[in-house]
Nucleic acid binder design. Structure first.
Length: 868
RNA sequence: GCGGAUGUGGCGGAAUUGGUAGACGCGCUAGACUUAGGAUCUAGUGCCGCAAGGCGUGGGGGUUCGAGUCCCUUCAUCCGCACCA
């Protein structure tokens, strides 16, 4: 046997562990670099060959940065709370804590044998009480905070209470979903309970009766990003809309900052666009319409206030609060019929039947505040209660949906921009000259847009307004395997457990993970799940105050886990703070984050939000978690399908490592293609990288497998091969082009094999270059070369570009852009000299065939093109 | 419908600023060594053609001495959002 990878790899993995080679130090004179992976959910099926792709890439980069002299933080952990473990528990009765621990052991074993340079001493598990007490602590901070629109940041709730005391609601520009008005005297007169109720409207973690995604099969509510096409992300079960009392996080308050922050970070355009789209900012105006015969007004949101003279009817969402009130006796049965229809229609049906216009007339009329016209008020489910005001002014000349609606129900269509043909369809272009629009006639669309808003403001019936699609994040789940809320209830009002008592609020042990017979979440089965305030501990049910029965969603822990890694395992503050000031000041933002793009609207949005929140409160010195993000592509199965147990096409990295070794797996995964692309696995192809490593091994081993190294001085060709490789690998590292570096290694070893080069001065730097991709064989050769320390912190080889320059250049000679032959010319000739040599060449004369060239283009060191 | 990405040999892919298209690897063909080889080595391998030569980066057009690369247009595939007023 030539190179015994299994022995060598096991040896170095053990050695690194003994040496503590990859432990990051929290006090180091070196510059810091933080390379983070998205930590895995430890599922029962273990890792397949696609999972380590991003980990290999980040590991290569982390190792590269160590060679460059950085103090690198490269941690790993487990996102160990979540649905699958609990589903498994319901099916088998196995406690999720046990299965999760088993899965973690298996993951660790799988990860270890790939040779990652993780600092395992900093490992986090989101289901570990020492971790989740800080997830609970952040929740408490959210609960006790509000969003100040004056300072444009989150602040402790005490400052809002002070403003209410001093000035009532007049004093505070506070973000809230509702509009409340009271004076300071009224505030002071409120009961304690009333005050708490009012504050709940402003807290960043709040409990409210809202329409949520309810998944009956999973028995829990889900956040918007956990619902894909009307089905649950986990399990693919149907999801319905339901009104329920739930905890939410007021992420909407941060919508604008979440958009603005994208300009400050290097993430892919596609992820940024997905987030912008999801946040869904749109600029327009909110305008008030009065209802004929009622004192009530209807607010509408529109992005085209300029078209208001063309608003010939109005449409309310079926759930709009005024529908009941304004419906006339004659129209009552029709409206009730439609409400019934709309209620029964599922989200999926509604989405599938977009083309099919439906609606009903309330019998009521609104007054167009500008044209003065009486316009009919309809209801239809194409208007969504959750967006804008749940009501629109319909301008059929300018909006396709309004046009379809008007056509279907024979409603009036008035052209408002010159040249519109309202018989053919709607025209939504923002250009042209206004007509039929009173004082706007003759003005451009752009002018009118601003004028109408100004006029609305003057008349007190409207104002400019920005709307967001982003909805607050539903934060409670009717599940067991998650963080318990540090919340108890007095008279139905939520109170937080004191921060210093959080060690008491651990997930209680139960043995049945289904909802209770009364429909409560599984925590309803816990025997001691009431809070004794005075003693500061959990007590038997029936005593004290009842605790919250919901748990937090799967993504609660990943909101902030990257900060916890900064705390060294032996830090004295570890149990006193979620992260120490020294640690977060030193490590700062994550410099490089690698993970899947599927988290674009979930984790990657939520943890930006929580980062901004913690920044506002002064706990951390930055408001974006990650400077640079890379989304690795998926490795598909060889048949082009997604790798999945269902198709039986899963390739297990354990098998690959057993058969070809960890270095081969690492090199092969990188060699498959660019890190961000999806690409199929190729079982045969791994032979190529294995051959490459054997070839490298043979370069410095005799036929009898004895290590042989020459101390001779290198020649020009050998130096050129090496320095070409230094240049290529260094450039590839900076642009994360790990596939091309593998080919550069192969080129170098092929060339050195041809040159029969086993010289120390060439092999040593080459092994350093390779050590990021294939650390085991590199470490072995490094030690054979006589070094006692690990290769991992040896300085990166320095490029000398003088070695790259050749004595001569082989010029392709092309005629009209087509290469015909080559001429070898000495390096350093100027344009005239090159042209002279080419024109005197007999091949050139032959190809010119007596003609005079019209033009000769000489690009030194590149090409000569003759235009004949 | 809106937004984003990707199209290059039999396959994965390379070509960083417009300058030798197909690096590197897989596969395939032939040969060497071998009792044997899924080991190793040598040579070859974009397509058509005996050759000279011609054609080639999804399709069509353009700019340029020169285009995979820039511009216009079109098609296909994948991903995200979707009656968002």
């Amino acid at each position: 046997m030539e190179y015994d990878f299994s022995k060598v790899e096991a040896k170095w993995q053990k050695q690194w562990q003994e040496w503590g080679t990859f432990a990051a130090k929290n006090n180091s004179p070196k510059p810091k670099y933080y390379v983070l992976d998205m930590f895995p959910y430890p599922s029962g099926s273990g890792l397949h060959v696609g999972h380590p792709l991003g980990y290999i890439a980040s590991d290569i980069y982390a190792r590269f940065k160590r060679h460059q002299g950085y103090n690198v933080l490269h941690p790993m952990g487990y996102d160990s709370y979540g649905l699958p473990a609990e589903q498994y528990a319901i099916e088998t009765g196995q406690h999720p804590a046990i299965t999760t621990e088993d899965n973690i052991k298996r993951y660790r074993k799988q990860l270890d044998q790939i040779g990652f340079s993780f600092d395992w001493s900093r490992q986090v598990k989101t289901s570990d009480p020492n971790f989740y007490r800080w997830t609970q602590w952040i929740f408490i901070k959210l609960f006790h905070s509000w969003y100040n629109l004056d300072t444009n940041k989150a602040e402790p709730i005490e400052s809002l209470i002070q403003l209410f005391k001093d000035h009532g609601t007049k004093g505070a520009k506070a973000y809230s979903a509702t509009t409340l008005e009271f004076t300071s005297a009224e505030w002071e007169a409120f009961s304690e309970t009333k005050k708490r109720e009012v504050l709940l409207e402003f807290r960043l973690a709040y409990r409210a009766d809202t329409i949520v995604n309810w998944c009956p099969a999973l028995g829990t509510v889900l956040a918007n990003d956990e619902v894909i096409n009307g089905k649950s992300e986990r399990g693919g079960h149907p999801v319905e809309q339901k009104r329920m009392m739930q905890w939410s996080l007021r992420i909407r308050a941060f919508a604008q900052r979440l958009i603005d922050g994208l300009d400050t970070i290097s993430w892919s355009d596609s992820i940024k666009d997905i987030q912008r789209n999801w946040i869904g900012r749109s600029q327009g105006a909110e305008i008030e319409f009065s209802v004929d015969g009622f004192v009530d007004k209807i607010d509408v949101f529109t992005t085209r206030p300029d078209t208001i003279f063309g608003a010939t009817f109005m449409v309310l969402a079926p759930e709009h609060e005024l529908v009941e009130k304004i419906t006339t006796v004659e129209q009552r049965s029709q409206i009730e019929h439609y409400l019934d229809f709309a209620k029964k229609r599922t989200e999926r049906e509604r989405m599938a039947e977009v083309k099919d216009v439906t609606g009903a007339f309330t019998g009521a009329f609104a007054i167009n505040p500008f044209s003065g016209a009486k316009i009919p008020i309809w209801i239809s489910d194409y208007v969504l209660v959750s967006y804008g005001t749940g009501a629109i002014m319909a301008v059929p000349a300018g909006d396709e949906r309004d046009w379809d609606f008007a056509k279907k129900f024979s409603l009036n269509i008035i052209p408002i921009i010159e040249g519109q043909d309202v018989e053919k369809g709607a025209d939504d272009k923002k250009e042209g000259i206004m007509i039929n629009s009173g004082f706007l006639n003759g003005k451009t669309v752009q002018e009118s847009m601003q004028e109408i808003i100004t006029e609305c403001e003057n008349r007190g019936i409207g104002r400019g307004k920005i709307n967001f699609k982003l909805r607050d994040a539903v934060f409670s789940r009717q599940r067991y395997w998650g963080e318990p809320f540090p919340i108890y209830y007095r008279e139905g009002i939520p109170y937080t457990v004191d921060e210093d008592k959080l060690d008491q609020i651990q997930l209680p042990n139960i043995d049945n993970f289904k909802p209770t017979e009364t429909g409560d979440p599984p925590l309803g089965r816990a025997e001691q799940w009431n809070w004794d305030r005075k003693e500061g501990k959990l007590v038997q049910n029936g005593k004290g105050y009842p605790m919250e029965l919901n748990t937090m969603p799967g993504w609660a822990g990943s909101n902030w886990y990257y900060l916890r890694y900064m705390m060294a395992a032996n830090s004295e503050h570890r149990n006193a703070e979620f992260v120490s000031k020294e640690a977060v000041d030193y490590w700062g933002q994550v410099d490089l984050y690698i993970g899947g793009a599927e988290h674009a609207t979930g984790h990657l949005l939520y943890f930006r939000f929580i980062t901004k929140f913690l920044y506002d409160l002064g706990f951390i010195p930055f408001d974006e978690p990650v400077k640079q993000l890379i989304n690795q592509g998926m490795i598909q199965a060889e048949d082009g399908h997604k790798m999945s147990k269902r198709y039986g096409n899963v390739v297990n990295p354990d098998d690959v490592v057993a058969e070809s070794g960890a270095d081969a797996l690492r090199l092969h995964e990188m060699f498959l293609g660019p890190i961000e692309m999806h690409k199929p696995w190729n079982t045969k192809g791994i032979e190529g990288v294995s051959r490459f490593m054997r070839k490298l091994w043979r370069l410095v081993h005799s036929a009898e497998n004895n290590f042989t190294i020459s101390e001779d001085a290198p020649n020009k060709d050998e130096l050129k091969s090496l320095h070409k490789c230094i240049q290529k690998i260094s450039e590839d590292m900076e642009r994360f082009s790990f596939n091309t570096s593998v080919s550069a290694f192969m080129v170098a070893v092929n060339e050195l094999t041809d040159l029969k080069c086993n010289k120390r001065s060439i092999i040593e730097p080459l092994v350093i270059l390779l050590s990021c991709h294939a650390p085991h064989i590199s470490e072995e050769l490094w030690s054979k070369l006589g070094h006692k320390e690990s290769i991992s912190e040896v300085p990166w080889p320095i490029l000398n570009s003088a070695y790259l320059i050749d004595d001569s250049v082989n010029y392709p000679i092309s005629f009209n852009g087509k290469t015909r032959f080559y001429i070898e010319l000495p390096n350093g000739m100027n344009k005239q000299e090159i042209e002279q040599s080419v024109m005197n060449n007999e091949e050139t004369i032959k190809w010119l065939d007596g003609k005079n060239p019209k033009k000769i283009i000489v690009v030194p060191n590149r090409i000569v093109n003759i235009v004949a």
